[in-house]
Nucleic acid binder design. Structure first.
Lengths: 154, 154
DNA sequence: GCTATTTAGATTGTGTGCAATTAGATTGTC
DNA sequence: GACAATCTAATTGCACACAATCTAAATAGC
């Protein structure tokens, strides 16, 4: 019984798998971010786009997609919602009209300060005795344990 | 400036955050599982449900939702698709007709053997030189680094 | 100059995920 | 028994996420 995720009958065990732990941790993060970002009117992927733009304004959709590992089918509607919210502009590159460049509006730039507050809020949610933080901490422990276990038998 | 994810100007950096690493790793796992599970006609959450049923057949929707941390709004359509595929049955509990019990059909039970193959395939994809495995391994390393970094300054 | 290929985004269809609401059943109290 | 409070699942609406496909623009090859 030195196996890490095989039950005695050979059926894979649910709770001990790295992928499941990561999957759950991702949801737990999302749930932790959601109420904080709701105050800004953003979802987590939208917040990631804003972070990327605060770091480097004016990328093409393709560059943004590579940074965030998202394809145009996901980004196009997401960016249109951000444009609808007045946070970004989408403008065709005159040099190469296949490309669409994404730029922050003044409103989007002004949100940068609030974005820093989000990081602090999440830090608090992770570290302290915030309500609802326990599931996230638990999931992260599971991820760590599964990562350590998986790196042991490689 | 011993801070772990604050850039010099205070804007949070994208690449160094635990939440982003977990988010990316979750997608990377999904991409790794997708082609393998496609052979069974399952998505990853559907596979999780099958795993849960192979471990314990006949739970209510609520029990299943607690195990997988999903609510009925997610599970109900997912379970209907599994029912449409002939892998499970959904039947009202005669004792308490509010509850719906989920049971494997013979076809669903017969898939158990193939489910074990999935675990092995993912193990290979993680460990070896499988095509497309590198992004997943990279992401997991990032998660590990971020986890270690975050546990250092607590 | 002109067609063929490549590239960048947009579109469409399927499948999660979750908040909010609804419908029906059960339990507790009178 | 009647009835309100509670509980469970289903339903609805919105927002990702990705595969497959389409359109338009740019480039390569002739």
């Amino acid at each position: 019984m030195a196996q890490k995720d095989g039950a005695d009958d050979g059926t894979p065990r649910l709770g001990q798998q790295l992928c499941f732990a990561v999957y759950q941790a991702s949801h737990a993060f999302n749930r932790a971010y959601r109420p904080i970002l709701a105050a800004l009117g953003l979802t987590y992927p939208q917040y990631l786009v804003m972070l990327a733009l605060w770091e480097d304004d004016g990328p093409t959709v393709k560059a943004l997609g590579e940074k965030l590992m998202l394809d145009s089918g996901t980004l196009t509607p997401l960016l249109k919602r951000l444009e609808g919210a007045g946070l970004i502009r989408r403008e065709r590159d005159p040099q190469d009209e296949r490309q669409v460049r994404i730029r922050l509006t003044d409103k989007g730039e002004a949100m940068r300060a609030q974005g820093q507050g989000v990081q602090e809020a999440i830090g608090c949610a992770l570290g302290a005795t915030a309500p609802g933080a326990e599931p996230l901490r638990e999931q992260l422990e599971r991820v760590r344990d599964a990562l350590l276990a998986s790196s042991r038998d490689e």
